[in-house]
């Protein structure tokens, strides 16, 4: 009984989310019906679902393409971003060069540099991964730098009094201390990676949900656009919650999720 109860409370958030989404869909269906909205403007949800069910494997193929590019781009951004952040925090020169360059680069709307990457990397799958990584990278670097820097100076004193070397301090204190901040960056970055993939697919592609949307637009196939949007929304939500789950699993100690049960002295 206790397990069931804790499972029930643990799933409260997704349950509310799913229920409110379902409510919205019902409202949408009714609105389209009663207001007689032409389906080339806004198709009813039943038509959108029907569109997906008409050709599920075709949709899955494009979904898989977009999902893979997003996840690979995200992973690349996390690896490169964390390494860059460590270099920035430990080297003054790197801070003044790499960090400054990153901030300058970030002020360019990254959508605008997509065509450049198509020229450099080609129109294929790698350019989508690259776009996802480029857009996601900044969030990871910023939050990781912030996390690595937010070390209590007294903690550093403690480590030094124990004879710790810089490497030990990085791996045993500085890095674990930065993990909550890195996860905050990852939650932002996963959504950005999806944006990057879609932008890449808009510019030049022959697969992926971004490609499906662009081609459907040219034939006024609104149901197909909505079907792709629905899949993207579900994908984005699931990816976000997977990272949230990973955080809960890896950082049970993190302040935002600890229980407030304390024994007496």
């Amino acid at each position: 009984m206790g397990d069931l109860k804790s499972w029930w409370s643990y799933t409260a958030r997704p349950r509310v989310l799913i229920l409110s989404a379902l409510g919205l869909i019902v409202l949408w269906e009714l609105a389209v019906d009663f207001l007689r909205v032409p389906s080339f403007l806004v198709p009813a949800p039943s038509r959108v679902i029907g569109e997906i069910l008409k050709n599920p494997m075709w949709y899955w193929g494009h979904t898989y393409y977009t999902l893979l590019a997003t996840v690979l781009g995200f992973a690349l951004a996390v690896i490169i971003g964390v390494v860059l952040a460590v270099i920035i925090v430990y080297s003054r020169t790197a801070e003044q060069t790499i960090y400054a360059a990153l901030v300058a680069l970030n002020s360019i709307p990254k959508v605008a540099i997509a065509p450049l990457f198509i020229i450099w990397v080609g129109t294929g799958f790698p350019s989508k991964v690259t776009m996802a990584a480029v857009i996601a990278l900044f969030a990871i670097v910023i939050d990781t730098v912030l996390g690595l820097r937010s070390l209590d100076p007294e903690l550093l004193d403690l480590a030094r009094s124990m004879g710790a070397r810089p490497r030990g301090i990085l791996f045993k204190i500085r890095f674990p201390n930065a993990l909550p901040s890195i996860f905050a960056g990852m939650k932002v970055a996963i959504s950005l990676a999806l944006v990057g993939t879609i932008v890449g697919e808009f510019v030049a592609a022959s697969s992926g949900l971004g490609y499906v949307i662009v081609t459907a637009q040219s034939t006024f196939d609104t149901a197909r656009i909505f079907a792709s949007l629905l899949i993207l929304a579900v994908m984005g939500t699931i990816l976000f919650f997977l990272i949230d789950l990973l955080e809960r699993w890896l950082l049970p100690w993190h302040a935002s999720q600890r229980h407030q049960e304390q024994p007496e002295a």
């Binding site: 009094s161 204190i173 950082l251 100690w253 993190h254």
Partner: peptide, 18 residues
């Protein structure tokens, strides 16, 4: 420099949460 063979206790416990 930081001495090796001594133990230090600070006012705050400075325990690592993880």
């Amino acid at each position: 420099g930081p001495a090796q063979d001594l133990g230090v206790v600070f006012q705050r416990d400075l325990l690592l949460d993880w």
